[in-house]
Design a protein around this nucleic acid. Structure first.
Lengths: 204, 204
DNA sequence: ATATAGTTTAACCATTTGGTTAATAAATTT
DNA sequence: AAATTTATTAACCAAATGGTTAAACTATAT
């Protein structure tokens, strides 16, 4: 058996596919374009990944497995809701700034094929709200935070953190800012969002 | 000149195109499928709209012109920030429940082609934040609401209202709810979101 | 009623696109 | 070093797809 050269090729294909799929989506991506970007023959794509769908799925799972731990890490950590919100917001925005296509890619493709997430759900490490739910209920009962459903709070957190990336062109147009000012807006949100949330739920 | 029959056809094409484009996107949509859904020959699409791109743009502009007034109406209305937040949240969620594909369609296609929004910007009635900005600054100065940038507040509002629709499959998976429970979550957000925002910014 | 302009269709066309194949080159095993 | 397995390529293929065309049909005007 030989490795080295082939692993390299397989890796380069995946990298190129990631690039093309994440910016153009499954339907917009062209196998030829992926091959070109990887600097190899189109037949190689099929040699390593059989067909477009499987290549796409490899990219998608890869992307998803990058996002999920970010959620889990904070959700199940041993700290107060307030700390979690702060940490998550900072971590997540920092992370996505480095992978700006990720959220949009995942959301777009999940909407195209909702069954897809069922496969992800079976994966070890798929985000689970159980611990977070118990914690929210406990803190509400204790009076640390105002009454709120854990699900709704979770959606609030996701929305405030992810939406600005997904809707970047819309936001830039509405708020009338250029690329630089947009980046600053995002930068500010690393603390802004956490404060906004905590402000709303914290009992004084 | 004759009308009636042709207006009808043109209208039916647009309606069919809306359907297909909004659920499959520009790249996923097929001209044949649109023709089939409209119950006419494929050549008619070109007769009335010249080509796929122009048909798509007709649909897109149509969709966008549905969303924009929703924003404007509330933004420039003569009422307090608190009232605006309440009204907007209720109106917007109610509206999107009736057009669930809209936000995702617009966001997806704007990401595919960000220049597209420049054309929209020239349109009369493109959402403008000036009045809202002045109002936020005034209320902050007056002390009705806590210090916050109008832009950030606006992004918060959009995010909390729109994201749950855009990320529906993701949210359903994470919170582990079925279609019915998801609908209930959304229903609850008609007041939940407004309260959450006001809670955070209102000075007591 | 006849000419004219607008509407609709079936058949066709060129290009794109995902995918295959057969032959070649490069490693690896024996 | 010969045989065998693995990697890679160029050429090819069939289906799909956006778009066109020429002819037929329908309504309106003269």
């Amino acid at each position: 058996m030989k490795r080295a050269k082939d692993e390299n090729t397989e890796e380069r294909i995946l990298e190129a596919a990631k690039n093309i799929f994440q910016s153009k989506g499954m339907n917009g991506a062209r196998m030829q374009e992926i091959a070109d970007k990887a600097g190899i023959n189109k037949a190689m794509l099929h040699y390593y990944y059989r067909n477009k769908q499987l290549l796409f799925e490899a990219v998608f799972k890869n992307a998803f497995s990058l996002l999920a731990p970010q959620l889990n890490a904070v959700l199940n950590e041993d700290s107060s809701i307030e700390e979690k919100v702060k940490k998550f917001t900072l971590n997540y925005i920092t992370f996505i700034v480095k992978h700006p296509y990720l959220p949009n890619f995942i959301i777009q493709e999940l909407n195209r094929n909702p069954d897809f997430i069922l496969q992800m759900k079976n994966n070890e490490g798929f985000p689970n709200l159980d611990i977070f739910k118990k914690q929210v209920d406990k803190e509400v009962k204790k009076g640390t935070i105002k009454p709120i459903s854990a699900e709704q709070l979770f959606i609030h957190i996701l929305a405030l953190n992810i939406f600005p990336f997904v809707a970047k062109p819309l936001i830039m147009a509405f708020t009338n800012v250029d690329e630089k000012a947009y980046k600053q807006l995002i930068e500010d949100r690393k603390t802004e969002v956490a404060n906004f949330i905590i402000n709303s739920i914290k009992n004084i």
